[in-house]
Design a protein around this nucleic acid. Sequence first.
RNA 1: GCGCCCGUAGCUCAGCCGGACAGAGCGUCUGCCUCCGGAGCAGAAGGUCAGAGGUUCGAAUCCUCUCGGGCGUACCA
Length: 575
Amino acid sequence: MAMRAYLQRALLEALRQIDGVPNGFLPTLEVPKVAQHGDLSTNCALKLARHLHRAPMQIAEEVATRIALDPDRIEACEAVRPGFINFRFSHRQLYQALAAVLEAGPQFGRTGAGQGQRALVEFVSANPTGPLTVGHGRNAVLGDTIANLLEWTGYDVTREYYFNDAGRQMRVLGASVRARYEQALHDRNLVAGSYATKHATDGVGRRVEVPASFPDDGYLGHYIVEIARALADAEGAALLSATSDAPFTQAAKEAIFQDIERTLQRLDIRMDTFFNERSLYESGALDAVLQGLSGTGLLYEKDGATWFRTSAMGKDSDTVLVKRTGEPTYRLPDIAYHRDKLQRGYDVCVNVFGADHIATYPDILRALRVLGLDADRIDVILYQFVTLVRGGQEVKMSTRKANFVTLDELTAEVGPDVTRFFFLMRSVGRHLEFDLDLAKEASDKNPVFYLQYAHARICSIQDKAASVGFETDVKADLALLTHETELNLIKQVVHFPQALCAVAEAREPHRLVVYLREVAAAFSHFYHHCRIIGEPRATASARMALAAATRVVLCNGLTVLGISAPERMEKRDEA
RNA sequence: GCGCCCGUAGCUCAGCCGGACAGAGCGUCUGCCUCCGGAGCAGAAGGUCAGAGGUUCGAAUCCUCUCGGGCGUACCA
């Protein structure tokens, strides 16, 4: 950051001396793809060529000669071919930055862009009608990691889970549990007589037997049976006479939420707050939204329903907010909920949604704008769906026993580190192919281990060094690090804070995965070209320091991703 | 029909707010363990960046169209 800012200032100063450069012109600096082109590069001469009616190369040369640079920081500045100006950092600059990594240690990478600001990340938000699925897994891991990223860039972050335990879904859930409860009582001979059954069709078209009292669109999952049995164990036949399904709904909700939280905890995810949709009904927030909207004339009645004139705001149709029955559609509480978030004073509200929400959130933003709220504070992350692949075949998401449906099963099978890594390694805009065979394989094919292995290897070197009689020396003479692989590794390691910042701002965790892979690769190259233990003491100390700094970055980076940085990895048995 | 996402090496994907010869992993082929962990390293082969136009000094990247795949488009949640 410092170098980029420093160079930009120097460039601006140089450009000011050249006739015809527009006032607001801001030169940009980027890291060239090829190391040969230096550490930072600007294309400003190419950009200005048209404006100045001059050859880009000529401009580049003039800038390069006019720019005033501290040779202690920049060792080379040259204008090159089409008109790029390339800068090379001085070694001294690199060594200073490297020392700073060791000084900051576990804090290295923390920056302050969000200092003093509060962020709310809403994610998962699955209603408590069943266990979390693999699809929820991508949501959960993305949300948690984005929250981590925001924390590392200085925000005060709240992780929130929004849910609805009132609607039709929950009524059906309660009725399903009740039917299974009655069945359980019969199975245990706690009530006399036989009970009637009927057939229902499950998600993959199979006929299954259910109690006659089972709702037509009831929940067929086995977890319902378990909840019902637990109720039968705890309450006996006492609930048989209940006048409503409420006790069943309540029991189901509690059991399922417990299950969901446990599933999340296995992935090291903990929510700060749970927001109940029902509270919006009770607080009058829904009415407040309707009132606010009606004041603008964008609300009208038709066929007994209340409509929001979204057609006046770029949508091809209007949207119902309150049904003819008087019941709100889900969009109304959604609007009220987001209004509530903004009113709670969050500077940034991140929402993690599956691609199927593509059509709903624009309505929310429209409504918020109409209500005079700053909808730009809401940042929607839309992720594409997950496909499980096993044996080269897509696993159909179904209740079929052999297939995975729940997040829990997935985590149990491949472990939390691999689960998180796989959900994070692809960009959110792409479908995620989750290869179970690859995920389960503890081998070099599995990309997670490449990162963890590099970390473990450094730890192992440090152990070895300690046993030989010396440890990382903070006062090592870093100027002894001159090998190409050493310099490259230093550059990678030192870049961590900027990399993290950029990833946080873009809210694209997969880019952190890409960066960390590069760090691990740079370390492996260094490791294979430069010995540490056994070299002269001064050289060994410097290399130990470099390894320690690499460890810091790998560890901090993995921590942001929510993946462990093991000090050793089990040797695998070669089959 | 309309809206959004995606189409880059045999496979899975980076790169996409335009720039310097298109990158990585896996797979394939060659080498490297008397030496700090070979879950590694060094190297090779492999691409009309779906296709066609356009904008530009310059396009995988921006615009238009076409073709493929996915998701939406409810007074369901």
